[in-house]
Design a protein around this nucleic acid. Sequence first.
DNA 1: TAGGCCATCTGGTCCT
DNA 2: AGGACCAGATGGCCTA
Length: 149
Amino acid sequence: MQDRLVDSTLIDFVNDMNLMEFPQKCTLGAKQQVDNDAPSPRLSDSPWSDLESDVRTVDICAVMGAPKYYSRGAHGHHSKSKRRRIISVVQRQAANVRERKRMFSLNEAFDELRRKVPTFAYEKRLSRIDTLRLAIVYISFMTDLLENT
DNA sequence: TAGGCCATCTGGTCCT
DNA sequence: AGGACCAGATGGCCTA
């Protein structure tokens, strides 16, 4: 009984969300359908397949004639900041790798959240911001449902 | 072609 | 000192 109530209400909720909240998201491109569940690979298939050799950074350094060290807070008055840390190119590259890993885990969490929110009427992968918004609405909806039953 | 979305780099700040 | 987190900048890809 309650299952049926939840099911039909949930279907209505999802339909409302798709038709009213995100009408522009109902179209589908071929590429999106292919990588529907996987994070779309941009520069490389593996997020850190090029960890050992960051060609982009090295090339920029070579072209720009960058110094061996990065100076932090070197923008005008910012150079007077209390703590100024000088990091090497190697340290900068290591920080970039850590940042890529951090963003990868963040995207994994977004993918997990995408699987938790009802989106069966969607054909296109939800963006991160739409995932968050839909999750907020969905939680509110389920909370109301619990309180009124 | 403009706009949205995303990956990546980078420097600043906070925390251990 | 160094790692985590964050936000701004930048450039690429895709769609309307």
